[in-house]
Design a protein around this nucleic acid. Structure first.
Length: 655
RNA sequence: GCCGGUGUAGCUCAGUGGUAGAGCAACGCUUUCGUAAAGCGUAGGUCGUCGGUUCAAAUCCGACCACCGGCUCCA
C-alpha cells in the first residue's frame, strides 16, 4: 500500500504497487502524456513503467530543457539510439559504455572501421528512423547467469556485467528498443524514457578517441559524442551557445585584436604583443595592489634551480616528467614548474619567530611545465606561464583565519571582473585513500577549510577523495558570461613541504621551542595566461576600460582637424590613457566601422565644429552617442571610468 | 603521449594531376568626406616540412611538425 507524496505535499494512497505512469495518470492525463520518468525521494530516477512498491516522495519528470533530470533521461536514451544506429550501419561494432554527460552524452565503442564526421549524416538519418518508429524502451531483467550468457560475445559488455555483479547487483538488466527478442538490446541499468519517439531533438556532435576504463594501456575505443534536448528549441539554443563560444574563442580574438601569437616551432609558449601585454600588465598591477592590501610581501625566485633542491622538495621524484631540465658543468638543473620551494627557501633565511607568522609571500612566478603535446590549448594550456602565486607560512591555528581571509580577497577580486558570489562555485576536496597524517588532523583541517568558505559568504560542495595526499584543498570555479565554468582559484593546505622531511621551515614559538610551519599554496587567477584567455572569452574581447589595450581612438573627419586631434591625444596621453588617432584618408563612416570592429571602448569624432568649440563627439563601442563634452569633461569621464574599474553594462556586480 | 580531423597570401576561404585564385587588409594615386565599408591601381604564396609516385603534384602515397575536437595527464 504505497503512500506517494507529491512535490506539493499532497499524498496519494494506492491499494497496491503502482507504476510511475499510473501515478502520473492519477494526477492528470495531461501529465501522463508529458511524463518521461519519475524521481524517487530526490535521488533515484526510475522508468515510468516500473513499479513503485514503497512509500516515497516522487517527482514526475516531464520532458523539459530546464530540468537536469529530464535531460539526463533523454540523453541516456539517446545514447542507446545512437548505439543502435551505429550497430545497424556498421555490423560488428562492439559497445562499451554510453553515459549522459554535461551538454549531452557519448558512447564509447569499437567499430569495424574508423568513424569520422563524414559518417554523421548517415548515423543521424538512421537515428531519426529509430525515433520515427517510436519503439518503446523495454526493461528486461535476467539472472546473473543468464545475463552473462547474453553478453558472452561482447568483451566490454561482459566486463561491465561482471563489474555490476561485483558491485552487488543480483540480476542484470537489459533495455530493448522495441520488442524483446526481436529488436536491438543493450546491457544497461537504465533508466530510460518510455519510447524512442521522445528523442527527436538529438544530434551527433563529435568523434574522439577514448580508452576502455580511461586506461591508456587498455583498448583504444572510438567515442561518439551526441546531444539531445526535449525539443528543437533547446537543441537550437545549445547549437547557438556553441556558435557563441566560437565567436568568443580567445585564439580567434587574440589574432584579430593582435594580442599574442604562438610560434609553430615553439609550441606552448606565448609571444605577447603590445596589445596583449598591456592587458597582462594591467592584470598583474591590479593583483599586486590587491596583494599589498592583504598583507602579502612580493618576492622573485630563480627560474632555474639545482636538482638537489628539487630532490629535497620531492618534485624530482614526483613531478619529473613535467619538468624541463638542463645541465651545466655536470650538474642537473630544472626550470621551475612551481614556486613553492623557492618561497620556503626565502622563508628559511634567518631565524623566524612566531611573531613573523603568518608570512604571506607572493610572486608573479614564471613557471614552465612540460605539458603533453595533446594537452596544449591556445593560451589556456601552455608550457610557459606566470601564476599569481602565493604561499602563506603559518601555524595550524592560523589556517582557518588565513583561508577565510583568502576567500574574501578572492571574492573581491572576482567581483572586479564581473563574477559575483553567484558565479563562483567552490569545491572542497577531501582526504584521498593514499594519504599522510592521521584522521583527526584531516577532520580538523577539512572542517577549517569548509568553515572558512562559509564565513566568506560562499557555499561549497564536497569532492570526496580529491584532495592531495598531504592535505585538503579548495577549488574555485568561475561561471562566465555564457555559462561555462573555469576553475581558477585554489587554496591548499600543505604540512608536508615545510615539514622536517622536506624543506623544514621552522619558527621559534612562544615557549622557545622550534616548530615546523604549515603552508597554504594559493592562487586567485591561477595562470595569468589562462585567466586572460578566460577574460577574452568572457568579455568577447570588449574589455572594461581599465583593461582595454586601446581605450580611446580619435577620429578626425578631415585632415584639417589632425592638429586638434593630436592636441587631444597628448592631453589623454599625459594621463596615461591608451589613445590613438586614425589619420587615414577614409571617410568617417569607415573610421567608425573600424573603431567599433576593433573593440575600441570610446571614440572621439572631431570635425570642424568640435575643433571650433573645444569639444569632442563621444561614442562608445556599442555605437551609443554620448553627447559632445568639452575636452576637459571628456578626459574626466574617461579617467573616472578607469579609476572605477567600471564593467560593461549588464556585467556589474551588486555589492 | 593516444584517437579523429585540419594545414593554400597578413586574415577568411576557393582550387581533386596540366601556367596558384577571390574578398578583406597592406601599399600608391585620386577624393577631405559628419557616425558600420569612397574610387582606381600595385604588390603579396617554396600551397606546414621532408621524401616518394608521375612527363607533370597544392592535388596521389609515406613520414614528420603544428593546430583543432576529445582522451590521458595536472606530485
Amino acid at each position: 500500500m504505497p503512500r506517494i507524496t507529491l512535490p506539493d505535499g499532497k499524498v496519494l494512497d494506492f491499494s497496491g504497487p503502482v507504476t510511475g505512469a499510473q501515478v502520473a495518470e492519477a494526477i492528470g492525463p495531461g501529465l501522463r502524456k508529458r511524463a518521461i520518468g519519475v524521481k524517487l525521494d530526490g535521488g533515484e530516477i526510475r522508468d515510468l513503467s516500473r513499479p513503485l512498491d514503497q512509500d516515497c516522495a516522487i517527482k514526475i519528470i516531464t520532458a523539459k530543457d530546464d530540468d537536469p533530470d529530464a535531460l539526463y533521461l533523454l540523453r541516456h536514451s539517446a545514447a542507446h539510439v545512437l548505439a543502435e544506429a551505429i550497430c545497424t550501419l556498421f555490423p560488428g561494432t562492439r559497445l562499451a559504455y554510453g553515459p549522459p554527460v554535461d551538454d549531452g552524452f557519448f558512447y564509447d565503442l569499437k567499430p569495424p572501421r574508423p568513424l569520422s564526421e563524414a559518417d554523421f549524416p548517415a548515423i543521424e538519418a538512421k537515428m531519426q528512423e529509430i525515433v520515427a518508429a517510436d519503439r518503446p524502451f523495454v526493461r528486461c531483467d535476467y539472472s546473473a547467469q543468464e545475463g552473462l550468457q547474453r553478453t558472452k560475445d561482447d568483451i566490454y559488455k561482459r566486463d561491465n556485467a561482471e563489474r555490476a555483479l561485483q558491485k552487488g547487483s543480483d540480476n542484470l538488466s537489459f533495455y530493448v528498443s522495441g520488442k524483446p527478442g526481436h529488436d536491438w538490446e543493450d546491457l544497461c541499468m537504465g533508466p530510460h524514457v518510455p519510447s524512442t519517439g521522445w528523442l527527436k531533438a538529438s544530434k551527433v556532435m563529435a568523434v574522439a578517441g577514448a580508452y576502455w576504463h580511461g586506461d591508456q594501456n587498455s583498448d583504444q575505443l572510438t567515442r561518439i559524442y551526441g546531444t539531445c534536448f526535449a525539443d528543437e528549441k533547446g537543441l537550437k539554443a545549445h547549437l547557438n551557445r556553441i556558435e557563441e563560444a566560437k565567436r568568443r574563442n580567445h585564439r580567434k580574438l587574440g589574432k584579430e585584436m593582435n594580442l599574442f601569437h604562438i610560434e609553430e616551432d615553439n609550441p606552448g609558449q606565448v609571444f605577447w604583443h603590445p596589445n596583449g601585454w598591456t592587458i597582462y600588465v594591467a592584470l598583474m598591477e591590479y593583483m599586486r595592489h590587491r596583494q599589498r592590501k592583504n598583507g602579502y610581501v612580493e618576492v622573485h625566485t630563480p627560474s632555474v634551480m639545482a636538482r638537489s633542491l628539487w630532490e629535497r622538495s620531492g618534485h624530482w621524484e614526483k613531478y619529473r616528467e613535467n619538468m624541463f631540465t638542463t645541465e651545466s658543468e655536470k650538474r642537473d638543473f630544472a626550470i621551475k614548474p612551481m614556486n613553492c620551494p623557492g618561497h620556503i627557501l626565502i622563508f628559511k633565511q634567518g631565524l623566524k619567530s612566531y611573531r613573523d607568522l603568518p608570512m604571506r609571500i607572493s610572486e608573479f612566478g614564471s613557471c614552465c611545465r612540460n605539458e603533453a603535446s595533446g594537452a596544449l590549448h591556445g593560451i589556456m594550456r601552455v608550457r610557459g606561464f606566470v601564476q599569481d602565486d602565493g604561499h602563506i607560512l603559518c601555524t595550524d591555528a592560523q589556517v582557518q583565519d588565513e583561508v577565510a581571509n583568502f576567500c574574501r580577497m578572492l571574492t573581491d577580486v572576482y567581483k572586479d571582473f564581473g563574477f559575483g558570489v553567484d558565479k563562483i562555485a567552490v569545491k572542497l576536496a577531501t582526504r584521498p585513500a593514499q594519504r599522510i597524517g592521521d584522521d583527526a588532523s584531516w577532520d580538523r583541517t577539512e572542517k577549517a577549510l569548509g568553515d572558512a568558505v562559509t564565513s566568506a559568504g560562499l557555499k561549497y560542495t564536497v569532492s570526496p577523495g580529491e584532495g592531495a595526499f598531504y592535505g585538503p584543498k579548495l577549488e574555485f570555479t568561475l561561471v562566465d558570461a555564457i555559462g561555462r565554468g573555469w576553475q581558477c582559484g585554489t587554496i591548499q593546505l600543505d604540512p608536508n613541504l615545510p615539514g622536517k622531511d622536506r624543506l623544514d621551515a621552522t619558527y621559534i614559538d612562544q615557549d622557545g621551542q622550534k616548530r615546523n610551519c604549515v603552508m597554504l599554496h594559493r592562487a586567485i587567477l591561477g595562470s595569468l595566461e589562462r585567466f586572460l584567455g578566460i577574460l577574452i572569452e568572457h568579455f568577447e574581447g570588449k574589455f572594461p576600460l581599465w583593461l582595454a589595450p586601446e581605450q580611446v581612438r580619435i577620429l578626425p573627419i578631415s585632415d584639417a582637424q589632425i592638429g586638434y586631434a593630436h592636441a587631444l591625444r597628448d592631453r589623454l596621453q599625459e594621463h596615461a590613457v591608451r589613445v590613438t588617432v586614425d589619420e587615414k584618408a577614409d571617410m568617417l563612416g569607415a573610421k567608425v566601422r573600424e573603431a567599433r570592429l576593433a573593440r575600441v571602448n570610446y571614440f572621439a569624432v572631431v570635425g570642424g565644429k568640435e575643433a571650433e568649440t573645444g569639444c569632442v563627439a563621444m561614442q562608445n563601442q556599442q555605437g551609443e552617442k554620448l553627447g559632445t563634452p568639452t575636452v576637459d569633461e571628456f578626459v574626466a569621464r574617461i579617467l573616472a571610468e578607469i579609476a572605477d574599474k567600471r564593467l560593461p553594462a549588464g556585467m556589474r556586480v551588486a555589492d
